[in-house]
Nucleic acid binder design. Structure first.
Lengths: 262, 262
DNA sequence: AAGTGGTCTAGACCACCAC
DNA sequence: TGGTGGTCTAGACCACTTA
C-alpha cells in the first residue's frame, strides 16, 4: 500500500488521510465499520500502535467512534436545531418544557427532562453577570434534557436569591407558565437578553454528565436576562454538545436602507 | 506519587487528572510550563508512552499545547467578541474591513485581511441555501482575516453569479460601501438573514488555513441573506476558531408581556 | 550542542461484550 | 468464548529549535 516511510508525512498521518478520504468520498458511509487495528497493521505493515495512532486521530477529529469490541465506526452526525430566540416569543400556557418539546418532538423523538433546584454560590461567570456581591447567593434550576433517553443538553438557570425567595422558582418542578413569567410577576420583567457562545472541548465533568465522547466539542451558551432598567435578573448556562445541535436564529434589518455592511 | 495500578482509572488518566487539577486551581498558571515527559515518567515511575498519553489527552482537551523543544505549556485562551448582528447596523461610509477593524483594533491589535475572488461551483451547503440549479455557478469572495499577523478567522461570501456579474463584487478589492450595498444597488436589498452555527472539530484543511492546533474546535457559521421576497442572494461561510472568538448578540422582547418563556 | 517532543517498533496482558 | 480495542512497557532513532 502507498505509505512511504520516507514521505513528508508521518506514516500514521498517511493512514489517517486515506481513511479520511474514504469517509469523505462515500466509500465508507456513516455507520459503517472501519478496518480493525489488526487489519490496518497487516495492510500497511506497521506496528499496531502506529495504526492505532491513525485511528485515534480520526476519533479526536470527531469523524469516527470506537465501539468495542465491534470495531471503529464512521460517525453519523444528525444535529437538531436549537433556537435561542424561541424563548422571547409568545406562547400558550403550557409546561416549562414546551419549547423544547415543540422544537424536537416533531421528529417523533421522546423528550424528557430532570430538574434539580439548589441554593449556591454561583460560578464566577454567573456572579459577574448577575452583579452579585461577595457571598451573595443564587438559586439555580439545573436541568438535563433528554431525547429518546439520551442526554441532549444541560440548562442551568441562575436567579439572585433575594429576588426569587419564596416563589415557585425554588421548587424543583416544572413551572407551567415559565420561570420568566414568575420573575415578571414579582416585578422583574425581562425586556432584553445578551447571548454569548463559547466554543471549546468539554471538561471531564461535562463529558460525563452529557455522555460526550472524544472529539466532540461543545457550545457553552450564556444568556443574561435584563429588565427595562438594565438590571440582570437571570443568567442561563447551557452546554450544547456540538454533535447534537445546530444553533439557529434570524435577524431582520434594523436600520434604514442607507447602508448595508457586509 | 499517588498513582495506583489497581485503581479504577487507568494510570494515564490519573496523571492527566492531577495535571488538570493543578491547572484549574491555579498551581499551573496560563503560559507556564508543565513537567516534561521525562520528568513525568520519573515522578510516576511509568513508561514514557504512558506519561505521553496523559499529556496528549490534555492537548486534545485544549488545555495544553506542546511547544517543542521547550515543553508543554498551559494554554491561554483570550477570545475576542464576534458580533454577527453588527452587519445589520448602519455605519458610515468606510472600507469593507471597518466592522472587523472597529471590533478589534480597540485592543491595540493590528487587523489585516486578504481577499480572493473566484467563480466556482459552490459546496452543497451553499448551493442549497442559494437555491442554485445544477451547474449554476457562484462568485465567492474569500477572505482570511488576521490579527497581529496571526490568522483569526475566514469569511467566504457566495453570490449567485447571474446577480453580480459585472459588479464590483467580482473584483478582489475592498468594497468601500460593502458588498451588501452593491447587491442592493442592483436590486437585491437584503432585509432578513438566517444564522446557523455548527460546532465541530476543524478539517485538516481548515486547521492548516487558520493555524488551528489540536484540541481546538471551530464554529462553522452560515449566514443566508434574503430579500423582501425571500429570495436568497448571499451565503456567508465563516470559520471561527473557538480559542479566538466569543459569539455574542443581543435580543429584545418581540411580544406583549403576556408570556415569557424560560 | 543539548534537550525536547515526534515517531515507530514489538510485545504483553486485560476487560468487555456480541455472537 | 473469541476477537475487539484499551493499557502499558522498553527501547530506538529522529527533527527541531532554542539557548
Amino acid at each position: 500500500m502507498p505509505v512511504s516511510r520516507r514521505g513528508q508525512l508521518p506514516v500514521w498521518q498517511q493512514i489517517a488521510e486515506e481513511l479520511r478520504t474514504s469517509i469523505n468520498d462515500g466509500t465508507l458511509l456513516p455507520g459503517s465499520r472501519l478496518p480493525t487495528e489488526a487489519e490496518l497493521t497487516e495492510r500497511y505493515q506497521v506496528a499496531r500502535n502506529t495504526a492505532r495512532q491513525a485511528l485515534t486521530a480520526l476519533v479526536n477529529e470527531g469523524l469516527v467512534t470506537p465501539a468495542r469490541p465491534r470495531g471503529y465506526f464512521v460517525r453519523d452526525r444528525k444535529p437538531l436545531y436549537y433556537r435561542p430566540q424561541q424563548e422571547f416569543r409568545p406562547r400558550p400556557l403550557s409546561p416549562e418544557m414546551d419549547i423544547f418539546l415543540a422544537e424536537h418532538s416533531a421528529d417523533g423523538r421522546q423528550p424528557a427532562q430532570s430538574i434539580e433546584v439548589a441554593i449556591v454560590d454561583p460560578p464566577r461567570d454567573v456572579k459577574k453577570r448577575l452583579n452579585l456581591g461577595d457571598g451573595e447567593l443564587a438559586v439555580v434550576r439545573r436541568r438535563v434534557r433528554y431525547l429518546d433517553g439520551e442526554p441532549f443538553h444541560t440548562n442551568d438557570s441562575y436567579f439572585p436569591l433575594r429576588l426569587v425567595q419564596d416563589t415557585e422558582i425554588m421548587r424543583p418542578e416544572d413551572i407551567a407558565r415559565g420561570a420568566n413569567q414568575v420573575l415578571a410577576e414579582v416585578g422583574y420583567l425581562q425586556v432584553r437578553a445578551l447571548d454569548e457562545f463559547y466554543v471549546r472541548m468539554p471538561t471531564p465533568d461535562e463529558a460525563r454528565r452529557l455522555s460526550i465522547g472524544p472529539g466532540t466539542p461543545i457550545a457553552y451558551h450564556l444568556v443574561t436576562g435584563l429588565t427595562e432598567e438594565g438590571q440582570p435578573v437571570r443568567v442561563v448556562l447551557n452546554v450544547l454538545p456540538g454533535d447534537r445541535h445546530v444553533i439557529a436564529f434570524e435577524r431582520t434589518r434594523v436600520a434604514l436602507p442607507t447602508q448595508a455592511a457586509e
